[in-house]
Design a protein around this nucleic acid. Structure first.
Length: 291
DNA sequence: AGTGTATCCTGCAGGC
DNA sequence: TGCCTGCAGGATACAC
């Protein structure tokens, strides 16, 4: 569920509360979230100190010191957290009431008596502990950070790489651009006036320029609002995101388009909903497409 | 290469 | 109240 703005909000909220704390024990409630297996994961994480929290695409990256070999920079490691649809990272959650962990999957016990809980209702998330070189390789397999200075319209065009796949699907492909999911794909395409089903290779230069600007704009606005909560998303403090009211089409089927007043429509392809205004985002003229 | 489908899982809203 | 269906911010694997 969480996309780039939600992962960014979580990382920012988590960093101050996690830095400098050491893992003294790990409870593994659901080992199906650990592709490495419980014992390897535990052995890699035990006795290490969280040094910082970052983000890459939709992933929250918990940095660990190189406790075993302090002089080797490659000994530093990360806990890579892909939150799936319903993942949450909760530092020191209360036992009762709002913000408590309802579906704990992995519990890190920390040296000061506190905890970091990875909670995940549907358990589509993944948690891994990777050494530095492995993490760099993994990160290299992801596409552009859309908010990086180096990411311009030319880079977007190159990432799309002439594919015939619908532009909505191309935007969801994390190896092209990292961090865009179903909400912000719909939102960016609406702002750019491009139909979600347009084949990526048919986008003209002006459309690529608009799409590039729209992606960055909507992601920045969503970060400023602390992300979007449709139902499950909560930040590290257990709070909802405030960007839902900034959404122009996503989850607004039947409501008027803010641009033209026509009804927002929901279409489904590749098993996922896309929301659009068919007036502001006209379908291409012919079924097979030109170009 | 692209696309449709199924899968992993749980919960919730809506229809009857 | 309950039962059933469809749907959900993701990612992958498969057959055509």
């Amino acid at each position: 569920m969480p996309e780039l703005p939600e992962a960014e909000t979580i990382a920012r909220g988590l960093a101050p509360s996690l830095r400098g704390r050491r893992v003294i024990d790990v409870d593994i409630v659901h080992d199906d979230l650990l592709p490495q297996g419980a014992s390897l994961f535990r052995s890699r994480v035990l006795e290490r100190v969280f040094t910082d929290v970052g983000r890459r695409g939709k992933n929250v990256v918990l940095h660990l010191d190189g406790a075993a070999e302090p002089d080797d920079p490659d000994a530093a490691a990360v806990v890579l957290v892909n939150l799936g649809m319903t993942g949450k990272l909760l530092p020191d959650p209360p036992d009762e009431g709002d913000g408590r962990s309802t579906h704990p999957a992995i519990v890190f016990h920390l040296d000061d008596g506190g905890r970091l809980v990875y909670d995940d209702v549907r358990r589509f998330g993944r948690v891994e502990c990777l050494d530095g070189p492995t993490w760099r390789d993994r990160s290299d397999g992801l596409g552009w950070e859309p908010l990086d200075d180096g990411f311009g319209p030319d880079e977007l065009a190159a990432a799309l790489n002439g594919t015939r796949t619908p532009i909505r699907n191309a935007l969801l492909d994390q190896s092209r651009v990292a961090g865009v999911g179903n909400i912000y794909a719909s939102e960016a395409l609406h702002r750019a006036g491009i139909h979600p089903r347009r084949r990526a290779r048919t986008l003209e230069r002006a459309e690529l320029d608009r799409l590039h600007g729209a992606i960055r704009e909507v992601l920045r606005e969503a970060i400023d609002a602390g992300g979007t909560t449709i139902r499950d998303y909560r930040n590290a403090a257990g709070e909802s995101g405030r960007y839902r009211s900034g959404l122009r089409v996503y989850d607004r089927e039947g409501e008027p388009c803010v641009g033209c007043g026509a009804e927002v429509r929901r279409i489904v392809f590749t098993n996922r909903s896309a929301f659009l205004c068919t007036t502001c985002q006209p379908e291409s003229k012919r079924k097979g497409d030109e170009a």
